[in-house]
């Protein structure tokens, strides 16, 4: 190049609302740190808090939320959202309770519930993809529909007396010493493991991340974008129905008003777990941690006798705000310089 050739000053780089380098682990690590700090604080403040069983109870009490958060993670990673999950949980519980009451075989009931949830999610995904309607409004319709179908099945609560379900509700899987978990915990952790494998070891999982990173880029790279976008809602629906079954194990009933607002908890857990609501960044393990943080908030409030239960909602809202602001801060900083 000749001396006289002036190279142009670099243009304003496209504003990258992306996390760079190691920063992508930062939100998740922050959540893990927060969880450990809260656990440590609990140990200092309350006698008996620092025990393995307190930790395991966090899992036992939140199995359904863990599974929901896993499904929600898939959806949010693609930049979408699923508002229907709480209602689909309730619908799954109602279907299960009603069929069990009618004397169905529990295995067939579970299979049918899972199939229903997955199909419900796939249908929403198809509407989102084919008609290009915002996920928010389609899954809102899904919320109404599933909740309404609950009432169609029964307005009253249905008790589950099926021996398999009751045995699952009472079963304790002993670990070392006096520690134990419920079968639901095992199922939830298996779901987390499978999700982790799918997201990190399959082309489908990588396409999920690619869509969140840039949908048009993913299309230009020849990835199966439409199929993947439909499937994530199917996965979320499937997770919702698994969560419904787990919730049934836990509550041994079906009730139309069950799991109201659970979609907010699931979204909060995913966001607190470090997944960016704009998609592309986040981990199921982060979402698991997010659920544990929400769980420990609840534990705190039950230990602190003077605090009432509604503080849970307020604290979750505050956590949500803090993490959204953190996300904003992260993404603003990383405009490439």
């Amino acid at each position: 190049m000749s001396v006289l050739t002036r190279t142009p000053a670099p243009l304003d780089r496209p504003r990258m609302t992306r996390l760079r380098g190691k920063a992508r682990y930062a939100p998740t690590l922050a959540t893990m740190g927060l969880f450990l700090a809260m656990f440590a604080a609990g140990a200092v403040m309350y006698p008996g808090f620092l025990s393995g069983q307190v930790f395991l109870n966090l899992l036992i009490d939140n199995t359904f939320l863990i599974v929901l958060a896993v499904g929600m993670t898939f959806v949010i990673l693609t930049g979408g959202i699923d508002l229907s999950v709480g209602s689909v949980v309730a619908l799954s519980m109602m279907i299960a309770a009603a069929l069990l009451q009618a004397g169905w075989n529990p295995a067939a009931v579970i299979a049918l519930v899972l199939l229903t949830g997955a199909t419900f999610g796939l249908l929403m995904g198809l509407v989102i993809q084919v008609f290009e309607i915002q996920p928010f409004i389609v899954t809102l319709a899904g919320l109404f529909l599933a909740r309404g179908l609950c009432y169609v099945i029964s307005v009253d609560s249905i008790t589950v007396t099926d021996p398999f379900f009751t045995s699952m509700a009472q079963a304790r899987i002993p670990l070392v010493g006096t520690l134990f978990v419920s079968p639901g915990v095992v199922i939830a952790l298996v779901v987390v493991a499978v999700a982790f494998y799918v997201l990190h070891q399959t082309r489908f999982g990588r396409t999920v991340y690619a869509i969140g990173g840039g949908e048009s880029s993913a299309l230009l790279m020849g990835l199966a974008v439409p199929r993947t976008k439909v499937l994530v809602y199917g996965i979320s629906g499937l997770c919702s129905s698994i969560a419904g079954i787990l919730f049934s194990f836990y509550s041994l009933s079906g009730y139309s008003l069950a799991a109201t607002g659970l979609e907010l908890d699931a979204i909060a857990a995913v966001v607190v777990g470090g997944t960016l609501l704009t998609g592309g960044y986040g981990y199921v393990l982060g979402s698991l941690t997010g659920v544990l943080v929400l769980g420990i908030v609840q534990t705190f409030i039950s230990y602190e006798g003077t605090l009432s239960s509604w503080w849970t909602r307020i604290v979750i809202g505050a956590l949500l705000l803090v993490f959204i602001l953190l996300q904003k801060l992260f993404t603003r900083k990383v405009r490439l310089t």
Partner: peptide
């Protein structure tokens, strides 16, 4: 000009995305 890759993924993935050896 506006790079059509996925900024959230690694360099190696961006090179092989959709054609990863399995």
């Amino acid at each position: 000009q506006e790079v059509n890759l996925c900024p959230n993924l690694s360099v190696e993935e961006n090179i092989l995305l959709g054609r990863e050896p399995r």
